[in-house]
Amino acid sequence: MTEEDDALAAEYVLGTLDDRAAAARRVATDPAFAVRVAEWEMRLSALNGEFADVPAPDLLPAIEARVFGRPPRRWRLWGLGGLVGASVAVFVVLGPLRPDAVRTRLTAPDQALVVEASVTPGADGLRLVQVAGPAAPSGQAYQGWIIRPGAAPESLGLLTGAPLQAPVAGLPPGTIVAISLEPEGGSPTGQPTGPVILQTPLNI
């Protein structure tokens, strides 16, 4: 990385660089250049306070239509019976883990659905990975939750087949981990709205 590259990164962030498209491509492909850009974004962010806060109109419905293609559906309640009756087999296990990670296995009564959650001592976060079984039914998603003793459920995010690393810290003993079936895109309320498919106390 040369002085010239750093100057280009500075000009790109400042906005004066002529060939912005080339610099944007380079950010995506050249990690060293991306670091320089990030450093200039941090440096010049000292000016961000000079952008005033201006209440924005509620453009969220229009944005959601753009992003998700259609307005979010109204949530319908689904029974767990149908799901289990259809012999849905879901295994959620963990990707590469430290040997000292503590695993918790969540298993449905008929073993149709198995989820593993893990917490690594001394490290923040809880990890979930789906390894087998079908994805959630069309238009729906599996959503992970933790429930600390006496507290409301906190979303861990959606189980989409890729490892889910949720940034939760300081989980007390007695914390419950749960999976619910939610509309595609997750619970619209931030709290579980669909059937809780699995739940069990977390081994910590």
Partner: peptide, 25 residues
């Protein structure tokens, strides 16, 4: 981070927090 995991409710929760500053920009 929750949006990165595909959670739309997180996106909805972000809008009122982030939109005034971004609209100002």
């Amino acid at each position: 981070l929750r949006m990165a995991a595909g959670e739309r409710a997180a996106f909805r929760a972000l809008y009122p927090l982030a939109s005034p500053k971004l609209f100002g920009v």
